[in-house]
Design a protein around this nucleic acid. Structure first.
Length: 358
DNA sequence: AAAACGTGGAA
DNA sequence: TTTCCAAGTTT
């Protein structure tokens, strides 16, 4: 009961891989493809665009050229190296994964999908990508691109973002992967999704595998199935700009919270209807400040984090700092408000604070 | 299995 | 402006 597609898997992979070799983009991680560079790039690319990653990749692997160097790095160092890329759990996981490679394998990257899956931050996609691209193991690597391309190619109406959807795609995709070119096949599928078979336009006229595609004679945009996203929520946030000579007071976000380890101006989200003055009095009071006087707004900015749209207003505040230091309170030079030690929101605020507006 | 997790750019 | 998307993983 072989389908025409599986019988001609050879032709499909030849056409796909041939197209890839002539059409692929020149990307940093494709030059000198080592297991470590592949691991780093795949983690950096998780939910992050090529345009964002490309200018950051070489600097990162220069600073951390192998698992040993990253394994030895401090929290502050890895956060600064990842600042602005988002999803900061990724870099802690990557460092922890590098540490376990150093301890268990002498600093070598595991060579199989099964072994890679045991590393923190390495899931079904990333393990498949490293195993196939770096080591040639004939396993699937189903990211957003491949989920979409395979859905259309095979005519599968499933949601690739669910475990069930991925499994059904995987079971039909694996037989198509050539044993002697698994990496090129998988990367070609990814590249095809990125360049041709796009979410809002399939562009079948330019597709190297349209002859094998179920969706071309129907409606490619009918695939894949996708679930509704969670609605975004608007929140207001107040922060205090408390200058102290050429320094400014900040707080360091504690472990376990989102953006843990970064510094930001003291403040918090407002409850509906709550006043900025009350909130800032409370925040600074609990940090140990006294004689708190909340002044004018000195900066406004808009920031989005996951599904929250945040309107930030920063007030100038005069206050007497606590005598004993401790807890999350910190003090940094004003110029560091635009450095990698603070949150991205803080760097946005700093653009207003330190210079012009709008 | 749904929700959380960052950010910037395109539609 | 709002929504969607980008080489996902974890809980």
């Amino acid at each position: 009961m072989e389908s025409p597609l599986s019988r001609d898997a050879r032709g499909l992979s030849k056409a796909l891989v041939g197209w890839f070799h002539s059409s692929k983009r020149d990307l940093p991680w494709r030059r000198n493809r080592t297991p470590w560079r592949t691991w780093v790039s795949e983690v950096m690319l998780q939910q992050t665009t090529v345009d964002t990653v490309a200018p950051r990749f070489e600097a990162f692997v220069t600073q951390f050229p192998d698992p040993h160097s990253l394994a030895a790095a401090s929290d502050d160092a890895i956060l600064a190296a990842w600042a602005g890329l988002g999803y900061y759990r990724r870099i802690r996981s990557l460092r922890d994964g590098a540490r376990s490679c150093v301890e268990a394998f002498g600093g070598e990257v595991p060579r199989t999908q099964a072994a890679l899956m045991k590393l923190p931050g390495v899931g079904p996609y990333t393990s498949g990508a490293i195993a196939s691209l770096a080591f040639g193991e004939p396993v699937a690597a189903i990211d957003g691109n491949v989920g979409r391309v395979a859905s259309r190619l095979l005519g599968i109406r499933v949601d690739p973002s669910t475990a069930k959807g991925r499994k059904s795609i995987e079971s039909e995709l694996i037989p198509l992967i050539p044993k002697d070119a698994a990496g090129a096949f998988n990367e070609a599928l990814i590249e095809l999704g990125a360049l041709v078979c796009k979410p809002s336009f399939a562009d079948c006229g330019r597709c190297p595998i349209r002859d094998w595609c179920v969706a071309t004679d129907g409606d490619p945009m009918h695939y894949p199935l996708k679930r509704a996203r969670k609605a975004s929520v608007a929140v207001r946030c107040v922060r205090a700009f408390v200058p102290d000579g050429c320094h400014v007071w900040t707080t360091r976000i504690p472990d376990g919270q989102r953006l843990a380890g970064f510094q930001e101006l003291p403040g918090r989200w407002l409850a509906p209807g709550e006043s900025a003055d009350t909130a800032l009095q409370g925040v600074l009071g609990s940090l140990g400040f006294s004689e708190v006087s909340v002044g004018d707004t000195v900066a406004n900015c808009h920031h989005v984090i996951t599904h929250h749209r945040i309107e930030v207003s920063v007030h100038r505040v005069e206050a007497r700092p606590p005598q004993v230091s401790g807890g999350s309170l910190a003090r940094i030079e004003r110029s560091l408000l635009s450095s990698a030690s603070v949150t991205t929101e803080t760097r946005k605020v700093a653009r207003y604070l330190l210079k012009d507006r709008r």
